[in-house]
């Protein structure tokens, strides 16, 4: 590890006295591989990958885990978390996860999907997997844009938002309305825990990790489908710096996609809201 930049803290202690194993409070989990992530600087994917990896490690379920990667920026998720993975066709991850989970009832199976993958081309698969109450975790990254293909409109693109295919802003007459698919998912009796989180602040990351932990535990307890939306940034697609993208998300995305739990129960019960 590179230590050259840190020399001495002024006055009290030598920096080398602090950098000791017993003082370690935060480090990269061993479940993340050494492959550098291909994501753009500041991308939310890296944070969500990290907390998933931390949880799989902390909960001791590496040997039971099978991840399903989407088509989209997270297609290479399998390069980063040290578990068995499958790469699904665009939008089909919930069907793939269903197949895995049905013939391997003891496995912890999760999908990791973006908004184009989950809410557009894969809308049928996600609805039916959640409706059947498959014992899987769905991690849904909503950044309101197609990242990998170059920043086109997604179902979740906000009204007026400029993308490569809405160069004058999303026009609802032409393109319809931004889809709050997580709210629809929460209405399905097959789901157990449905929540919307964000990872643009340290507090948000910690909260999101708690939500994911609960979601994973629900899957392990066979309570039905757990669904965690993470409102995210795509600073390259949004054409903003990472910090400005976080701010834009807070001011524009979160008011339309408010954070918080939408359903916390077991499958078979309808949502209260």
């Amino acid at each position: 590890m590179e230590l050259k930049e840190v020399t001495k803290t002024e006055g009290t202690m030598d920096i080398q006295d602090i950098l000791k194993p017993e003082n370690l409070v935060y480090q990269k989990t061993k479940l993340l591989t050494d492959t550098p992530m291909h994501y753009c600087p500041g991308c939310s994917h890296g944070v969500v990958h990290k907390i998933l990896a931390e949880l799989i490690d902390e909960m001791g379920i590496q040997e039971r885990s099978v991840g399903v990667a989407p088509v989209g920026c997270a297609v290479f998720a399998y390069n980063y978390i040290d578990i068995d993975w499958q790469e699904a066709a665009h939008g089909r991850a919930p069907a793939v996860a269903t197949g895995i989970a049905r013939v391997n009832p003891d496995a912890f199976v999760f999908t990791y999907q973006g908004d184009g993958d989950l809410a557009s081309i894969g809308a049928a698969e996600i609805m039916h997997a959640c409706n059947r109450g498959e014992n899987i975790l769905v991690v849904f990254i909503n950044n309101g844009i197609y990242g990998m293909t170059g920043g086109q409109m997604a179902p979740t693109t906000l009204e007026g938002m400029v993308t490569a295919t809405t160069p004058y802003g999303r026009n609802t007459d032409l393109n319809g309305y931004p889809m709050r698919i997580t709210n629809l998912i929460a209405q399905l009796p097959g789901t157990s825990y449905v929540t919307r989180q964000a990872v643009h602040t340290a507090g948000g990351v910690r909260k999101c990790k708690r939500a994911l932990k609960k979601a994973i535990q629900n899957v392990l307890d066979k309570k039905g489908t757990s669904f965690v939306e993470v409102v995210s940034t795509c600073n390259s697609g949004w054409k903003l710096s990472p910090v400005a993208a976080n701010k834009w998300m807070e001011e524009n995305m979160i008011p339309y996609y408010p954070l918080g739990d939408m359903k916390d129960s077991v499958k078979g019960e309808h949502s209260e809201n």
Binding site: A95, G99, I100, R102
Partner: peptide, 17 residues
């Protein structure tokens, strides 16, 4: 499954195990 699209992808997931 909900469709043939889903059933073939369920086969993919299960076969891959």
């Amino acid at each position: 499954a909900e469709s043939e699209v889903a059933s073939i992808n369920m086969v993919y997931g299960a076969a891959a195990t």
